[in-house]
Every structure is written in structure tokens, then in C-alpha cells.
């Protein structure tokens, strides 16, 4: 049994009306515990819909979604499923519930019925992880776009879920901020075994994941390990390779063999080795 299983899942918005949009079509994949997964694809390819199917916010109209073996379509499983899969959504404005930042971050752990001391620790840890501890007593509406995104991430970190889905949750952050958040989640993945699913348009981030699922028009077009980035079909699907990969590919084609690299550092090393 895999941790998250999609078995032939389809979902349409406004199903049965003339405005029906088939957002997810016959999608199957599985994610194991502790995996670091990138979910990529063009705008409208179905990524956010998949995220919402992962914790029962949307239910499949056909097929089956299971988390820890629990069917998301069975209402009595929802509490356990939402406790294990935390999602940070694309638009942070829709996620703020409280008028004070630390209350907002505490909302998740409070719902889990934890004791106040544990809640305090988790809230502090989460706010420090995203660099917003000094803002804890302020109001969410008084934040900049990127600061709101950081708070939304903290809100899910505080739940300490088994799996965290980040749906383009760093799109408004500065380069350093993006890197810091990436480091926080990869550390939790490595040290605590947290499963991480990154939905992103930054292929540099996808290159740091163990597994890549590529969506196209509601279907899985490609999936596999990191080497998927060297699959020629990726470019045909309108995606852009991380620059280290595309440079390596072009050097390889010209006969200078640098092999398959995934980061700028690996590229630089490989170039020096083959000179």
C-alpha cells in the first residue's frame, strides 16, 4: 500500500452542465511515505485540482483516492486524512481565519485538540521557520503579499502533517525567501520523513525532488525520477528545463560529455571534470 494513491481519478467542475470543465482525467499515480515530489505542468493542467483531491476537499467523480489506505470519499475518514495531509493553497488571502497572526497559525493545532504548551511550541517553531516570528502579534491584513504567503506556510507547518502539499506557495517570495522555504521543507523531509509535494513552475525546484509528475490537460503526461528532466517530451509539453539541465543537454549534444546534472553546482563540477 502506498501513502497516497490515485486510481483512475476523474474530476470535472460544473459536471453535467454546459460549462463542464474536465480538470482531471483518469489520473493514476502513487506517492510513498517520505518522498519529495514535484507536480508540474502548464496553467490549467489540473495541478490545484489534484491537490484538493488529495485531502478530500474535492471528491473524485470516478476512481478512488486513498491516503494511508483511507478512502477520501468516506466522510468518517476526513478528519484523519486532513490531519495527515496539509495543503498550502495558491492564494494566501483565502486562508487567513484569525485577526492575529499567531492565532491564525494556532488554528490548525487547536483543532487537533493539542495541549496549550505543545501548541505554543509548534506555533513558535512554525513562525520562526518562515521568518515571521517578530510579526506574531500583528494582524494578517497588514502584511505584504509575500509575508501572507509565509504565514500560510507556517499555518500548515504547525499541524506537523505527515504530508505537506505546497501549491505554488512561494510564488510571491523573493529569491532568498524561496530558497529558505525550500530548505525548511527539504530538511523536514530528510530529518522527519515528511512527505512533500511541491506544485511549482520553477523547474529549478523540481530538480531538487526525488520524483516528478508532469501534468498536461488534466492527464499525467510523464512521471518518474529526476532523470525525467532529460526526457525530450518535457520541452514538447511547453515546459522549460532548469538551466543547468538544458546547458548540460546542449553540451552533451555537441560532444562534450558532461552527463546528467541537476543543479548549477553539479553542472560546474561536471564541466571542469570533462575539460
Amino acid at each position: 500500500m502506498s501513502f497516497i494513491e490515485f486510481d483512475n481519478v476523474s474530476y470535472s467542475y460544473s459536471a453535467g452542465t454546459k460549462n463542464e470543465v474536465k480538470a482531471v482525467k483518469n489520473v493514476s499515480f502513487s506517492i510513498e511515505k517520505g518522498e519529495l515530489v514535484a507536480l508540474v505542468g502548464h496553467n490549467g493542467s489540473g495541478k490545484s485540482t489534484i491537490a484538493k483531491l488529495m485531502n478530500g476537499l474535492l471528491l473524485p467523480q470516478s476512481g478512488l483516492v486513498k491516503v494511508n489506505g483511507l478512502d477520501t470519499a468516506d466522510k468518517k475518514n476526513l478528519f484523519d486524512i486532513r490531519k495527515s495531509v496539509g495543503i498550502v493553497f495558491q492564494n494566501p488571502d483565502n486562508q487567513m481565519v484569525a485577526t492575529i497572526i499567531e492565532d491564525d497559525v494556532a488554528f490548525g493545532p487547536e483543532n487537533l485538540g493539542l495541549d496549550p504548551k505543545e501548541i505554543r511550541e509548534r506555533v513558535d517553531f512554525a513562525l520562526k521557520s518562515v521568518g515571521m516570528y517578530e510579526y506574531r502579534e500583528d494582524a494578517p491584513f497588514r502584511l505584504s503579499g509575500g509575508q501572507k504567503q509565509r504565514i500560510a506556510i507556517a499555518g500548515v507547518l504547525a499541524i506537523c502533517p505527515e504530508a505537506m502539499v505546497l501549491d505554488e506557495s512561494t510564488s510571491m517570495l523573493d529569491p532568498t525567501g524561496k530558497k529558505e522555504i525550500m530548505e525548511v521543507v527539504t530538511r523536514l523531509n530528510r530529518e522527519k520523513g515528511m512527505t512533500v509535494i511541491m506544485i511549482t513552475h520553477f523547474m529549478e525546484e523540481a530538480a531538487l525532488c526525488d520524483k516528478i509528475i508532469v501534468m498536461n490537460d488534466g492527464s499525467v503526461a510523464l512521471s518518474g525520477g529526476r532523470q525525467t528532466l532529460y526526457d525530450d517530451r518535457l520541452v514538447e509539453l511547453g515546459l522549460k528545463l532548469p538551466m543547468s539541465c538544458s546547458v548540460a543537454k546542449r553540451l552533451n549534444k555537441s560532444g562534450m560529455n558532461v552527463g546528467e546534472v541537476y543543479t548549477p553546482e553539479q553542472l560546474a563540477e561536471a564541466i571542469c571534470r570533462s575539460l
Partner: peptide
């Protein structure tokens, strides 16, 4: 660049890594 939370554009960053390695 570092202080302001920025990063180098990718071609410049890869160039810098190569310069550090003597190219």
C-alpha cells in the same frame, strides 16, 4: 545582492561558479 534577498540571474550564477573553478 545577498543583503537584499536577491539572487544572480542563472547565466551569471553558473558563470560565477565556473570562474571560482578557474574558467
Amino acid at each position: 545582492v545577498a543583503e537584499a534577498g536577491l539572487s544572480l540571474p542563472m547565466p551569471a550564477y553558473i558563470s560565477k561558479l565556473l570562474v571560482e573553478r578557474g574558467l
